[in-house]
Design a protein around this nucleic acid. Sequence first.
DNA 1: CTTCTATAATGAGGATTTTCATACCTGTAA
DNA 2: TTACAGGTATGAAAATCCTCATTATAGAAG
Lengths: 224, 224
Amino acid sequence: MKILIIEDEEEIRESIASYMQTEKYVCEFADTLNIAIDKIVTHDYDCILLDLMLPDGNGLKVLEKIRALNKQDGVIIISANGSLEDKIKGLNIGADDYLAKPFHLSELNARIYSVVRRKKFDSKNLMYYNELEINLQFKVVKVKGKEVLLTRKEFDLLLFLVGSKDMVVSKNAIAEHLSGDMADMMDNIDFVYAHAKNLKKKLTEAGCNNYIKTVYGVGYKFQV
Amino acid sequence: MKILIIEDEEEIRESIASYMQTEKYVCEFADTLNIAIDKIVTHDYDCILLDLMLPDGNGLKVLEKIRALNKQDGVIIISANGSLEDKIKGLNIGADDYLAKPFHLSELNARIYSVVRRKKFDSKNLMYYNELEINLQFKVVKVKGKEVLLTRKEFDLLLFLVGSKDMVVSKNAIAEHLSGDMADMMDNIDFVYAHAKNLKKKLTEAGCNNYIKTVYGVGYKFQV
DNA sequence: CTTCTATAATGAGGATTTTCATACCTGTAA
DNA sequence: TTACAGGTATGAAAATCCTCATTATAGAAG
């Protein structure tokens, strides 16, 4: 995954960079508006981290440029002053997320994941994970080219986990998502176990690797 | 129902007012920021219609005042320029809905209904319609004090219809709501008929008047 | 008023979802 | 290591939901 970090403060840039490298992201940098725009015009990034306060102008210009070029790069705005106005303006012009300084690097990481994932979902109707194929449009799942008949809830669950690929999804989140209910405390979430079991079973029986991992005490995780 | 109309253009004010009177709402008016704030401080309204362009300042100040006073009045912003920025800012500061000029009065009316209803839902856990009692908190329905056992979908349907009391809800809207699915064209909405039938049956068998009316060719309506 | 067509109601059967009881597993602490 | 507690898996039963074929009804047209 390729990330562009647009940020003029050396210190922040470095700390983000070092963290990103442990996550095995490829990072590039820009510390001015002009360098940033140069890079954006000539490259595609999975995600762009954009500080709004730059020495040669407001970072929103970068955002405008990206959208004007009709680029699909995900953009997360990083703002020091945390002003609501910037946030609104940013999300409006087309940022995908917004993060106010200071933030935890793990939080940033989670946002990047989620933005990149969302982008992929939006643009693609088909997803492949080795022998596993998920067709969003027709709501069909295939393993090794052969269709696996999933029930609606099973499909929903799979998609929900895939949507947070490599991240653990709590049982409660799953319960809420599947039942469509509010954040009420669920009195019983056994149905999550049941659907997880059935989904796993159908996939493995079709010859799919065990991509759905149980995370003891927390929930489940989709990981290729 | 008491409505406050904050609008400086005489013509618009009158047309809204006359329509609202046919709907049997009680209307009050304010044509400046100062009058508006005076009224808001001293009265409670079910719904406030707020034009942003006022002679003595931006209407968002009214909104800020309402929220600062921790008032529960519903607020619908009416804006001439239809700028997205105003919309977002407004909804963010705490408006409940937003309507760009020009609009149909029936549309406005529907929005008022929906805002007022939503507010009521938010604050109330219990709703009574004569012999019918709906407990949001425990998701229980009683008729003449006796519990009626509804399935989840039946309860959902009832709530959805009650939430748009006196307005017709299309079968498609119901189908989407019940299935939790996106705006995909449903290939089959027979299940709406089924749930509607079962819900009606359970209620009438429990001795509840037929508050759920079928609107031929459109959908259903909850009406006391 | 009668007929016609589209829409809605109905009942039953099959599919799915949820619950429940029980067995199994994981991590923790003695 | 072993026992323990809390968490998870499982199969089967119960409840619910969806589909389908059929019947009934509403509104339109003649």
